Every structure is written in C-alpha cells, then in structure tokens.
Amino acid sequence: KELVLVLYDYQEKSPRELTVKKGDILTLLNSTNKDWWKIEVNGRQGFVPAAYLKKL
C-alpha cells in the first residue's frame, strides 16, 4: 500500500471527494490523474486534489 501525507485541509465539494485534515496519513488508491488522487479515509473512497497530498 502506498501512503500519502495531507499537506493542507481540504473540504469536500462533491460526493466524489473526501474531506481531509493537514497531517493525516492516508492510503493512496490511484494517482494516475495528475490533478486528482483517489484515497481512502475511514473506509470511504474518494478524490482529493493532488496538490494537497505528498507521497510517503
């Protein structure tokens, strides 16, 4: 499993997105899109802007 660090808080703006908090370490599911990465948070899957995340 690949992990990502959340660099900035992000509030979901659609049902396909997820809310994340700065400092969270989460599972990366897909990073093929350069702008939006798919991650998992508490069993939910969704997208967060790639600029808000850093691969560990």
Rank of each mutant, 00 (worst) to 15 (best):
A51R: 15
E2P: 12
Y8Q: 14
R16T: 12
L28H: 01
W36A: 04
F47M: 10
K34M: 11
E17R: 07
N30R: 07
Q11I: 10
L26E: 08
K22P: 03
F47W: 15
N42G: 14
T27M: 13
G46L: 06
A51S: 13
R44M: 11
R16W: 15
K55T: 08
L53E: 00
K54H: 11
K38Y: 15
V20C: 06
V20A: 03
D24T: 09
E40W: 05
W37F: 05
V48I: 07
N42Q: 10
E12K: 13
D35V: 09
K54G: 06
V6N: 00
L7H: 02
I39G: 04
L7K: 05
A50H: 03
R44P: 01
G23L: 02
K21S: 11
L28G: 01
V6Y: 00
E17H: 07
L18V: 15
D24S: 10
Q11V: 13
I39W: 00
K1N: 13
G23N: 06
F47Y: 15
N42Y: 07
K1F: 15
Y8K: 15
S14F: 08
N30P: 03
N33I: 05
K21R: 13
K54L: 14
V4G: 02
L18S: 05
L28R: 01
L29H: 07
D24W: 15
V48T: 02
A50D: 02
K21N: 09
W36M: 07
N33E: 10
S31E: 15
P49V: 02
Y8R: 13
D9S: 08
P15Y: 09
Q45K: 09
L5W: 05
R16Y: 14
N42H: 11
S31M: 09
N33V: 06
K21H: 15
V48Q: 00
S31C: 10
K34A: 13
P49R: 04
D35Y: 12
N33C: 09
V6F: 01
R44Y: 08
S14W: 07
K55W: 05
N42E: 11
R16M: 15
D9E: 04
W36E: 06
K54P: 00
K21E: 07
N42I: 08
K55G: 04
K38M: 15
K54R: 11
L26D: 02
P15L: 09
S31P: 05
V41K: 15
F47I: 08
D9P: 06
V41D: 15
R44I: 11
E40Y: 06
E40Q: 08
K22R: 13
N33F: 07
E17W: 05
L18A: 12
K22S: 09
I25E: 03
N42R: 09
R44F: 08
G46F: 08
G23E: 02
W36R: 04
L5E: 09
Q11P: 05
Y52Q: 05
E17C: 06
T32V: 11
L28S: 02
S31K: 07
D9L: 02
W36V: 04
A51H: 12
L56R: 03
W37T: 02
L18D: 01
Q11G: 08
N30K: 07
R16I: 13
I25K: 05
D9I: 01
L53I: 04
A51E: 13
S14I: 05
V48E: 00
V20D: 00
F47D: 04
K21C: 10
W37V: 02
K22C: 07
L29A: 05
F47E: 05
V48W: 01
V6M: 02
L53R: 00
P49S: 02
L26G: 14
Y8T: 09
G43Q: 07
N33T: 07
I25M: 05
Q11S: 14
I39T: 10
K1Q: 15
L18T: 06
V48N: 00
L7D: 01
K34R: 09
Y8W: 13
D35G: 09
E17M: 06
V4W: 04
K22Y: 05
K21T: 12
Y10V: 01
D9C: 04
V48C: 05
V41F: 15
Y8M: 12
Q45D: 11
L3D: 04
W37M: 03
T27D: 07
T32F: 10
G46V: 06
V20E: 00
L29Y: 04
L29S: 03
I39P: 00
R44T: 10
L26C: 12
Q11W: 15
D35K: 11
D35P: 02
Y8G: 07
V48R: 00
E40F: 05
K1P: 15
E17L: 05
E40P: 00
V48M: 05
L3C: 09
P49Y: 02
E40L: 07
L53C: 06
A51C: 13
V20T: 02
F47L: 09
S14Y: 07
E40D: 06
A51I: 12
K22N: 04
